[in-house]
Structures are given as structure tokens and as C-alpha cells.
Design a protein around this nucleic acid. Structure first.
Lengths: 216, 216
DNA sequence: ACATTAATAAAACGAACGTTCAATTAATTC
DNA sequence: GAATTAATTGAACGTTCGTTTTATTAATGT
């Protein structure tokens, strides 16, 4: 046989991406075979090579697009010229929402870095560093303005990112907690962690338990 | 050829474990071949099967011993009948010290779970859950005693563990920060995150920046 | 010294891997 | 409706994989 009725390059490529994210997240990049991926899409392995020249090209494409999406999401959500507390809240909300929404892709981007060539690894890490630098700047601004109490900006940024990204390890949609509830609690923990003071409203009182919902 | 002069089963097995942890941490379990591992040890691949019947048995052994070591380390470090703040501090110190000391093994235990059979995965997760439960109990006791302010005990425990374990991702011994400095900062962040009050010393004042070294 | 056991090498097994190539058919263009 | 292009199949390629088998030598016990 050969070309099948109703076959469409764009649809097949999209199906390959989606199936690859799911399979790599579940099995790991090395453990997933091209034949397995093809079977998931409903196609022969050779057909995959029409869209991605090698297995690594496929992985790299998935990762690059994930990072681009994250950076774009932040550049949209980022509040301009706001105070550090507001900016930090926006960063946390965007980060958690994005990562919960794309749990599988995040897993791939975080776990399969070692399967990239040196050059491509550098490229992905550069994007990641740029994204993390945004958080460091917020923390530094807040510390300088006396709104945060932070020992070490870089270390705090890493701790916060690990904490927030860790959500995808245990969060399952539709279980005990909603995304909004998780976000609210993480916001509260974040603000306390950085020693945020909400002077604008009530004078230098540290963050307490936040019970009100946070808009996403 | 056959048996080599000076060959010793115990030493070879120890060398295999050590090399396996290092190789799996660097390349991933699926990407590491038994021939690669054997070469690292300075032996032929067939010799490995004298010590571990299959590749998965090797992985499982490494993981089980890592978890056993973690639980044992905590059961030694754990303070008996102390207040929640002291117990939480001990948990954080032990966790960070253990994980920095065994970065590679931690990487293996955290990243390669999906390569275990269902039965063995369950066994490892059971140990991990037992270890995490210790933290949840500390948090619950502290919250009930009014020493902590916590929204959700389970969620806070997960956040803290992700934050602390994340140290191994960026920490490199001998770089900018010492283990003691990292631990001190993480202790301070943890105490603020849980809203710890150090009543015993100074009345209900929240944790501030901790500058004094913490004994490990 | 000799017999036994421990530790390894060398070679081979079938299976699965990523990838390529030629052939074939569906859709599109003119 | 013929020519062209797009999409896919089926078979094959050489490699590498985890693992097994057999033979061989070092160390140990008697």
C-alpha cells in the first residue's frame, strides 16, 4: 500500500507531536521507539521521517516550542511598571497555570535534556535562563525596594522555581484540589517565603493565609 | 582469557554500583548500555551478570539502597520529643545534607522510576511516602500547636520537598556557596514558608534572615 | 600437589533499534 | 484526463542491545 485516503500532512505532523509528548513523558525519550510512536499515530515508522529528519530533531522541536510558549505566555501576562509584589504574583500565577496546562511537555523539557546534542542543549538552556532571569529581577527589585526580605536572590529564585514546577509531579486535574486552589496556596507560600510586606494596604504586616481566590 | 589476577568479587560489585550510579545519573538508565558500564569498571559485560541478574535488578538495587539510606539517616538525625520548629529544622538539615552528599544517587532515584516494574515501583514509592509522611506529621503538629501557619499540610510538604530536593539540580560543591550556607538559607526560607513563630525565644515574631551557621 | 571454587573472558544469540529506499497510491494541478 | 506532487507503505540495512553459554584461569582449601 501507499498513500492512504484522507491523509493530510499537517494533521499527521500535529498528531505526531501530540503522541510524542505523551509517549516521551510516560516512557522517556530513550525508551520510546519510533515504531511505538508511529503505532500511536496510526502510521508506519517510515512516515515519521517525512516530518522529522531524526528522532533527536523531534525531541528538540518539542522542547524548543515548549520554551517558546512559556516565554511568550509570560511576556503576555507580565504586568508593566507594577510593584514587585504584583509582578511576583503574576509570575507565580503564570508559571503554575502554564505548567499544569502542559504537564507532559514540561516533563519532557525537564527530564530529557541529556538526550540533546551539546549545541541544542545550550540553546534550550539559554531560553530557560532568560525566563528565570525575569524572576531574579523581580526578587532583586523587591529586595532593593524593601518589599521583600531575601538572603540570596539567585538561590531564592531557584528554590521558588523548583517548588512551583514540582506541582506537575503530584497534581492531577480533577482530584482533591482545583488549579485555582493550588495557585492560591502557592501564592501564599511564595509571598511568605520572600518575606513580602503588603505595605500599600495595611503596613508592614507579613503575608497571612490567603483564602480568597486568585484570578487566573 | 578468564579470571584476572587480583580479581575480587566484593570489590568488583562495589565498583559496579558506583559506576552505575554515575553513568545512569549522567546518561540515563535506558541510554546506558551494559557494555558501557562494564568498560567503566574495566571488565567484560558478561561479568556484570555475576552480581546482578538483569539490568533492572541493578537499577532497583541502587534505588532501594538509596531510599533505605535516606530513611536510616533520618531515623538517626530525628530529635525525639522536641518541639515542631526543632523537628522541622532537623528534617530540612538532614534532607539537604543527604541529598547533596548523594547527588547522583538521588538523580537516579528521582528520574528513573518509570524503568521499574509495577511491583518494584510500588515498593520504592512506599518507602518514599513513608519518608514524606514524617514531614507531614511535623507540619501538622506545628500547625495544631499554633507554631506554624499552614494552608494545606499535604501541599506544603510537597512544596518543601520539591524545593529542597531541587538543590541537587544546581548545586555544585566547591562553587559559590558552601553546603552550610545553602542549608542556612534553605532553613530560613522553610521557616518563613510555614510561618514559623519562635515563641520560645522572642514571642510571636516571624522568622527573619538567619545569618548564623547551622550545625550539620 | 591436587581438587575445588571464584571470577572472569570470548563468542554468540535473537530481538529491537533508528533509519533508508523503492514502490505505490491519493490528491492536486493544468 | 494526464502529469505532477504529497503521503504513505513494506521491506530491508547495518548496529547495538541485554543476555546466555562455554571455556579458562586465579585463588583457596585440603
Amino acid at each position: 500500500m501507499a498513500r492512504t485516503t484522507g491523509s493530510d500532512g499537517e494533521k499527521t505532523e500535529a498528531a505526531v507531536r501530540e503522541a510524542a509528548i505523551s509517549l516521551i513523558a510516560r516512557l522517556g525519550y530513550e525508551a520510546m521507539s519510533m515504531r511505538q510512536l508511529a503505532a500511536e499515530v496510526g502510521v508506519q515508522a517510515a512516515a515519521l521521517y517525512r516530518y522529522f529528519p531524526t528522532k533527536e530533531d523531534l525531541l528538540f522541536t518539542l522542547m524548543r516550542e515548549h520554551m517558546e510558549g512559556l516565554i511568550e505566555a509570560w511576556s503576555t501576562a507580565r504586568p508593566v511598571a507594577a510593584d514587585p509584589v504584583t509582578r511576583l504574583a503574576a509570575y507565580v500565577e503564570n508559571h503554575i497555570a502554564f505548567h499544569i496546562e502542559r504537564r507532559h511537555a514540561t516533563h519532557v523539557s525537564n527530564m530529557e535534556l541529556r538526550s540533546l546534542s551539546h549545541e541544542r542543549l545550550t540553546q534550550i538552556l539559554k531560553m530557560r535562563t532568560a525566563y528565570e532571569k525575569e524572576l531574579r529581577m523581580i526578587l532583586r527589585d523587591g529586595a532593593e525596594a524593601g518589599r521583600f526580605e531575601i538572603d540570596d536572590t539567585g538561590l531564592t529564585a531557584m528554590a521558588l522555581i523548583q517548588m512551583m514546577t514540582g506541582v506537575i509531579v503530584w497534581f492531577r486535574p480533577g482530584e482533591r484540589l482545583s488549579v485555582a486552589e493550588v495557585t492560591t496556596t502557592y501564592l501564599s507560600m511564595t509571598m511568605r517565603l520572600v518575606g513580602a510586606k503588603i505595605d500599600a494596604y495595611s503596613g508592614a504586616r507579613p503575608f497571612e493565609r490567603a483564602k480568597d481566590a486568585v484570578a487566573l
